[in-house]
Simulated scan of single mutants.
Amino acid sequence: MIYDIRHVTTYSYESPVSYSRCSLRLEPRTGDGQQLVSHAVEIRPKPADRAVRHDFFGTHTEIIVIETSHRSLRIDSRSRVSVSRTAPGRAAPSPEWEGVREVAFEATSLGPDSPIGYIFASPLVPVQQPVTAYASRSFPKGAGILAGAVDLMHRIRTEFKYDPKATVISTPLAEVFEKRHGVCQDFAHVMIAGLRGLGLPAAYVSGYLRTNPPPGQPRLQGADATHAWVALWCGEGLGWIGFDPTNNILVENDHIVLAVGRDFSDVSPVDGIIVGSRKQKLAVAVDVLLVG
């Protein structure tokens, strides 16, 4: 499948901003059944400097600096991506989860695909006993890692309520877990925390999910959104498998990967600093169109 993706981020400032420095993680990845065909970012006002680097996790990160006074910042990212991946069946055989845990802790590579970088707590995903206990009910002794992850994903989907008004980015994991309300970012963080509490390597994945309007209704421009899910290392044979707890599905061709990290703080599409005062407003519009 081939997708055209447009992701427009607009900041509006109550008073002029004299300086901005932003990190952009807007280029979709190549790998794991996904191929980037083209990518371009238009920025207004025009940056004084643009530089590209790849972080530890392999994410393409563009640093922009704007030195002219401005009341708005518009970042218009356009990408074309080809996706062809197949997830294992939900009941497919897989190694015992305890064995996968042992192999992961013995990993010697420190590369971005190594499981060792995703075992331990991270800034937004602390390891907490109540969350570990919750996850452990899906992983009885000797269970296959795939079956355990599928069960945990299903439980989060059915026992947590999707509620965009319940949380913000700074809402602590413990509060999300206690309230059982949140959005895709929260559900991914809860699943990752439970898996890491069991010693299993789990990564946070940001990206896009193709959505379809209800029958008979037109597709609204800009109505899509960024999405988040979990990648779990299931052993050397299966490798990294994607799990979407918001929708209770394994990741296949409707998911487009933007960036991978330990939690949201590693993969925020746009972040940075400004020199200014007063309030700002943020508007984000995303379109994911199937073109082939």
Rank of each mutant, 00 (worst) to 15 (best):
L232H: 08
A135Q: 02
V168D: 15
T171W: 05
I119C: 02
P172R: 05
I119D: 02
T158Y: 06
D224P: 01
F160Y: 14
P164K: 01
P172C: 05
T167H: 01
V127I: 15
T211K: 12
P164M: 04
E178A: 14
G242D: 10
N248S: 15
G199S: 09
P213T: 08
A225L: 07
Q185A: 06
V190N: 11
S136F: 02
W240V: 12
Q217S: 15
R196L: 08
P213C: 12
P112D: 13
A143H: 01
R155Y: 01
L209Y: 10
D163Q: 06
I116S: 13
W240R: 03
V127D: 03
Y162D: 05
G207S: 06
V251N: 06
R137L: 03
F120L: 13
A147T: 09
G111T: 08
R210V: 12
P218F: 07
T211Q: 13
T246I: 05
P126C: 09
K141P: 01
S122A: 10
S136A: 14
Y208L: 07
L110C: 09
G222I: 08
V127T: 12
V150C: 11
I169D: 04
T246L: 02
G117P: 00
I119A: 02
T132W: 00
R137H: 09
F187P: 03
N247V: 08
F177Y: 10
V168R: 14
G239M: 08
P213Y: 12
P214Q: 11
G194P: 05
A174T: 13
T158L: 03
C184T: 03
D163N: 13
G216P: 01
Y162K: 05
K161P: 00
C234W: 04
R180L: 02
G237C: 03
R196H: 09
A135F: 01
S138G: 06
V127L: 12
D113L: 06
P115D: 11
N248E: 11
K161R: 14
A174M: 05
V150T: 11
G182I: 11
E175L: 08
T246Y: 00
R196C: 09
K165E: 14
G182R: 01
G117F: 03
V125Q: 02
L200T: 06
T211I: 03
V127F: 00
Y118N: 12
I145A: 09
E252V: 10
T132A: 06
F120H: 14
I145K: 05
G235C: 08
R155E: 09
S136L: 00
P164I: 07
A188G: 07
G207L: 03
D254M: 07
R157D: 04
Q221D: 14
Y118P: 12
I192K: 02
T171N: 11
R219S: 13
M191S: 10
P164N: 04
T226N: 12
S170W: 01
G239E: 11
I241T: 11
A135R: 01
L146D: 13
A223N: 12
A135M: 01
P213I: 09
M191F: 03
S170F: 02
G142P: 00
H154C: 03
S138P: 00
Y134H: 06
